[in-house]
């Protein structure tokens, strides 16, 4: 009987790998962690940033941004579609709008960290037609180095999300709304 592939592969790697080289220490590259920089970065990748007057203004802001009678999934607003981690696909598919909390933002690239705990369902941030993420503006860090330093672990599933779904696969023409959310709005409070 031949050696199982695992042992074969590890043996081949051991025989081939060169003498150990050191793992570098990555310096803490910092920078400006401002709302303005975050907003400029996110706007530059087709996202939208709206500053709330306070948490109490959330519902009014959402209904002003999305005046249509949308099927809404949310953990922080009264929802019209109840969603949990085991919600079946046929209930997820018609969702128009999801309003979720984001953990923190990254100023250099307009990204927000969306952990599984805030998603209701792992597919909700991409299956919904439009996505609104609510972020405490004190929780903006400068670069990806500070972003990963904020994470003790990444949980079962977590996403750094930067703007709406997009593609440029046809002649490099930018089109917003490929498969995931057609729009992304970050509401800062």
């Amino acid at each position: 009987m031949s050696m199982p592939s695992r042992e074969k592969m590890l043996a081949a790697v051991r025989a081939s790998q060169p003498a150990a080289t050191p793992l570098p220490v990555v310096p803490a590259f910092t920078g400006l962690a401002s709302v303005a920089r975050f907003t400029a970065a996110l706007t530059g990748i087709s996202g939208r940033v709206v500053v709330l007057e306070g948490w109490h203004a959330l519902a009014a802001a959402v209904s002003q941004l999305f005046p249509a009678d949308y099927r809404l999934a949310s953990a922080i607003l009264p929802a019209t579609v109840a969603v949990a981690s085991n919600t079946p696909i046929d209930r997820l598919a018609p969702i128009d709008l999801a309003v979720l909390r984001a953990e923190f933002g990254v100023a250099e690239n307009g990204t927000v960290w969306l952990p599984e705990a805030h998603m209701l369902h792992r597919a909700l941030p991409t299956v919904t037609q439009h996505l609104v993420l609510v972020l405490d503006q004190r929780n903006i860090v400068a670069t990806m180095h500070q972003a990963y330093a904020q994470l003790p672990d990444v949980g079962g599933y977590g996403v750094f999300l930067a703007g709406p779904s997009k593609t440029a696969d046809i002649e490099q023409s930018l089109v917003i709304g490929a498969h995931g959310a057609r729009s992304l709005t970050v509401l800062l409070h």
Binding site: A41, G44, I45, S85, N86, E108, N109, G110, T111, R122, T126, M144, D153, V154, G155, G156, Y157, G158, V159, F160, L161, A162, G163, P164, S165, K166, A168, G180
Partner: peptide, 19 residues
């Protein structure tokens, strides 16, 4: 790759859900 600051989705898969 394209001059973007980061991909839209940078997704970390660590544990499957029960079932």
């Amino acid at each position: 790759a394209t001059g973007q600051p980061i991909t839209t989705y940078t997704s970390h898969f660590t544990r499957p859900l029960p079932g």
